[in-house]
């Protein structure tokens, strides 16, 4: 990260949050949403949007796969749990201080998706569970940087994707 000694000192107060678990988020995968997500990116690749038809005339979403960046739909919820985090209550305080005081100051700065250990693909009808923890927290150039690691599994525990989300909170937001 290349922090200065002053930044390292400023970062110390955030170390209590490292390893803290994010709230588990639950996401129901719907074929209709998978198609809308790909279309929002202007992506008309048939593998993401060309749905079939069942014998009784209903949409058949088993013909499509999720767009590779579709996990945005559930990692955003999972990662933004940190918006609700608070410092431990200190003596004399009646209300714990918030880690992030202004949501409008939060910006995404990095994201990764890793499917290499995935056991099953993302498919219509799945109920997915995202769990994770805060991996990094530091001050650099006057901003607070927070990186979360999130694993997303099916109901029976099969991994579908691993995600890392880095957000930065600008001055006035923490």
């Amino acid at each position: 990260m290349g922090l200065t000694s002053e930044e390292e000192k400023q970062s110390e107060q955030y170390q209590i949050f490292i390893g803290k678990q994010l709230n588990k988020s639950i996401h129901r995968v719907k074929g209709k949403n998978m198609v809308e997500f790909a279309e929002a990116l202007g992506d008309t690749n048939p593998k993401y949007v060309k749905i079939g038809m069942t014998a009784d005339g209903k949409p058949d979403y088993s013909t499509i796969i999720a767009h590779p960046s579709y996990p945005n739909c559930f990692t955003v919820d999972a990662a933004f749990d940190i918006v609700n985090w608070k410092y431990p209550l200190k003596e004399g305080e009646t209300e714990a201080r918030k880690l992030i005081t202004n949501y409008g100051k939060v910006l995404h700065t990095a994201q990764s998706y890793d499917y290499t250990k995935a056991e099953v693909p993302i498919q219509h009808g799945q109920k997915l569970y995202s769990t994770g923890y805060l991996e990094k927290a530091y001050i650099q150039k006057g901003r607070l940087w927070l990186q979360s690691h999130i694993d997303t599994h099916t109901k029976d525990g099969k991994l579908v994707v691993q995600t890392k989300v880095m957000v930065v909170i600008r001055e006035g937001g923490f």
Binding site: L107, T109, A110, S112, Y113, Y115, K164
Partner: peptide, 11 residues
């Protein structure tokens, strides 16, 4: 083929 990794820094 299929995309198995994607990582980017929003600068």
């Amino acid at each position: 083929g299929k995309v198995v990794k994607l990582s980017g820094q929003m600068r």
